[in-house]
């Protein structure tokens, strides 16, 4: 079963941009990426630019409304994602707890809907 790991953290948490700690964490992300690939569970994954650069788009009554910023003010913002293919939720949890920023961020785990199950 495929699971999406939504990687979130609060602004200001974690290493300062440009610091040696940030460089070290970057190395951990590359290692984590490699680990997923070597375990054969990696499907896809990307890191995102910070939430301040977000653009939110809505269409209301036929008119497109574009706003600067994320769609909702929250405490934690999406910073990237992975999709992995593992047996069950316990296996997904075991990969989530190894994410490099898990000490200050969080991972929301969502099972990917298998559309073929709906259409039979």
């Amino acid at each position: 079963m495929q699971y999406m790991l939504l990687l979130t953290s609060a602004p200001g948490e974690g290493p300062q941009p440009g610091s040696p700690e940030e460089a070290a964490e970057m190395g951990e992300w590359f290692a984590y990426d490699d680990m997923l690939k070597q375990a054969g569970v990696y499907v896809s994954g990307e890191a995102l630019h910070p939430y301040e650069t977000a653009t939110t788009v809505r269409v209301r009554d036929g008119a497109t409304v574009v706003t600067d910023g994320p769609y909702a003010e929250t405490k934690e913002y999406l910073g990237g994602y992975y999709i992995i293919d593992v047996d069950d939720l316990d296996a997904a949890i075991s990969y989530a707890e190894k994410v490099p920023n898990i000490g200050y961020g969080s991972v929301e785990l969502r099972a990917v809907l298998d559309l073929s199950e709906l259409t039979g």
């Binding site: 079963m1 699971y3 047996d87 069950d88 939720l89 316990d90 997904a92 785990l109 099972a111 809907l113």
Partner: peptide
């Protein structure tokens, strides 16, 4: 939906 396993965890867990 999330395939919560129904099994006795191994010793470690």
């Amino acid at each position: 939906a999330t395939n919560i396993p129904f099994q006795v965890p191994d010793r470690e867990h």
